[in-house]
Structures are given as structure tokens and as C-alpha cells.
Design a protein around this nucleic acid. Sequence first.
DNA 1: CGGTTTTCGTTACAAATTGTCATAAAGTCT
DNA 2: AGACTTTATGACAATTTGTAACGAAAACCG
Lengths: 222, 222
Amino acid sequence: MLSRYFTDEGYRVSTAESGDELRDRMRREEPDIVLMDLMLPGEDGLQLARDIRAHSDVGIIMITGRSDVVDRIVGLEIGADDYIAKPFNLRELHARIKTVLRRLRPNHDAPEPKQAENLICFEGWRLSAERRELRDPAGREVPLTTGEFDLLLALAQRPGRVIDRDTLMDLTRGRGREAFDRTIDAQVARLRKKIETAPHKPTLIKSVRGVGYVFTGQVSRG
Amino acid sequence: MLSRYFTDEGYRVSTAESGDELRDRMRREEPDIVLMDLMLPGEDGLQLARDIRAHSDVGIIMITGRSDVVDRIVGLEIGADDYIAKPFNLRELHARIKTVLRRLRPNHDAPEPKQAENLICFEGWRLSAERRELRDPAGREVPLTTGEFDLLLALAQRPGRVIDRDTLMDLTRGRGREAFDRTIDAQVARLRKKIETAPHKPTLIKSVRGVGYVFTGQVSRG
DNA sequence: CGGTTTTCGTTACAAATTGTCATAAAGTCT
DNA sequence: AGACTTTATGACAATTTGTAACGAAAACCG
């Protein structure tokens, strides 16, 4: 079931039935991430995970039946990157996988290397990551709340790239979002009201239906 | 039957009756993609596939009789790029082949490397991939919805090339489309209404009966 | 601490977008 | 021309997004 879902989502998926098979796959296919159930038939999942972590930097996400905090701690302690308890929903698992991948491949997703003064300029506006402030083209400071600032920064650091809501949530708050969460939408609306001249026809932050938002301002750093 | 069909579609097709013959062909002809039935007479299809994958990056699509999820998993697990269960229809197989080819040869089909400003100009219009906006010859912005923009971009990035509906669907939404899906047609109609002066006699996006659509505007990038 | 003020998540409803369907129109073939 | 396919397009329903409003939580402030 998992295999099917993630294949459809565009991932390349392999499965292994045993620790040996897993090790074999790792050598051959060099996966980016390993998803494993703690409860393995006839094998110690924890030991296996510890083992893999000892030999590789691959991302590891543990799945477990018991939702004990103990398990969580133990799981993370041995070096798993994240942990999810059954029953879980696929979207949440997917979100966590994306998060781990993002953390693992900094170049793929990271904000531009922070050089100079960490100043992001677009269409006359200046956003300073250091000072956590935004100035409009006339040089006046536009007061942003913490959440608005984080959101704008997350978007403006990745101009031209569509970012889905889960990722935005993760980027601005750390943890994933619930199923029918409109938090990001609301925050985008508030932010637009402050920085767009015509919030109904936004030019800086555009929506991409079914996905998320993009920052479409012309960015130059300085 | 397959050979006939794909030859007619303009592909170069070779067939092999055995694993040895396949290996031989691979050396001589360096195919882009291998289509193989899991059920081979007197040979282990899985092992053969694994073997090929070990030596080459060729695209592999597995065909199998049983539609078990198990098979699917096993097929993808050994590194096949896609999988299709009998009975399948040719159009679907063709769509999957195109998808795999597209994935494998990024340069053949990918949007131009994003340089400069990623601006596509045609007949006075300017389409900016970065800003996700379109401006008419007079410089006025023409508001496009997400779907319209994605469609126009997909077409305009490949001027003069006929693109079939499956590919368009794949290009604009990621996953394939159902059999009698008029989605693309509807979207094309909506797009034409916004950018063609005479939507009934389109000059920018033309239909190609039995296939799909072409972008026929004179394109220059800048 | 208690009282204020902000901020933000949630909800509800409006607006926009898009898939689907039905029907008309156009194209193809004999 | 007639029969049959394929495409165009308006209408409509389902989905997704925008945004105001409300109240809980957090931050602030003596």
C-alpha cells in the first residue's frame, strides 16, 4: 500500500522483507530515505536501525504500533530522523518524508547560502533576515508579525518556486499541518494585505491551485 | 502486435526472444527503453531485469499477467521505471512509455534551462515563467488562472511541436489522465478565449486532430 | 500576577477555478 | 452527401482559495 502510494507520488520505491534484504538494497540503490517498521518478524528493528545508522547517513523514519513516548525516544535516540505511530495517515507520513529529505539535501531546498547581509530585495522592497524587518520602496518600515515575517522569508528565499502548504508550515513552524488546515491561507491573506498594492490581484505572492504559493517578485540579494 | 504499433508511431523497435538476445541487442542498439514481459518462457524475468538494471540506465517497463500488487512492488523494486498489467490498452502503454522517456532524457523535453529571465515572447506577447504572468502586446497584464498558465507555459516552451493530451496532462498536473477525459480540451478553450483574437480561428494554439495541440506562435526568448 | 493588547488558528461563507457532461460544430472518409 | 469521429464550448457541480470574524493563546506591561 505504501509502495503504491509513493510510487504514484513520483518516488522510486523498493521494499525489503528482511534486514539482509534491506542491507542489500542499500548497497545497490543508495536510497535517500528508509522507512521501517519497528516490529519486524523475527528480528530486532531497533538493532537493525542502529546498524544502518552506523554505516550510512540515509534518512530513517520509524513506524511503530505502540504510540508510547518511550518508543519515540528510543527511536530517535538511535538516530532515526523521525518517527510516526500507527495508525497514521499517508499525507502526514508524506509530509514527514519531505521534511526529512529537505533536511538531508540542504542544497536542494535550502535558502540561498547566507552571505553578505542577508538582505533580500524585490521590486524596491528590502527584507532583512538579520534585523527581521521589511522596508517598502520608500524606505519606510512595514511592521510584520513574527508569523508574517517567517512566511515572507520562507517564500522570498525561494523565488519562482512553488511551495506547498505542508512545506510552508514546516518552514515557518517546524511541524506539519492537520488535514483541513487553512492556517497558511489565512496567513498569506494577512501578509498580502500588507505588501500587495492590490491584494485581490497579487503580484508578489501568487497562489498555485492544488499546490501552494510562489513568490513571484524579482529578487536580488545584497 | 506491439512492435507494429510502435513502429507505426514512429519508434525504432527491436524484439528479442530470449535474455541472451536482449543483452545482445542492448549492446548493439543502445535502446532508450526496454519493454519486457515478466512471464518469460524458461527464464526468470525478474532476474533478467535486475541484471539489465545492474548494467545500464535504460528505461524498463514491465508487463505482467497478474495484476497483483505484489508483482507491482516486485517489478518496481528491481528498478523498473514503470509497470503495466495485462490486459492493458496500447494508448495507456504508450503514455507510460512517453512519461518514462521524458523522465530519462531531461534535455529532450525539459523546459529550456532557466537562464536570464525565463521570458517567452511571441507575437508581441510576453510570458514570464518566474512571475507567472502574461502581458499582451500593449503591455497589459492578462490574468491567467493556475491551470491556464501552466498549460500555456507547457505549450509555449515547445513551439511548433505537437503535444498530445496525455503529455499535456502530465506536464501540467503530474499524473496521467483517464480515458475519455476532455479536461485539456476545456482548458485549451478557456485559454484561447483569453489570448486569441478569434477563438474560433486560433492562430497561437492550434488543434491537431487525433493527437493534441501545437503552439504555433513565433517564439523568441529574452 | 491581573489586565491589555496582539497575534494567530479556526470557522464560515463568498468567490474563483476546474472537471464533467451535454450538445453543437467541424473534420474525415467512403 | 451521409455516417462517423473528434473537437469546441456553454452550463453546472465539485473543489479549492480568499477573507472577515471570533475567540483562545501568547506577549506585553506595569
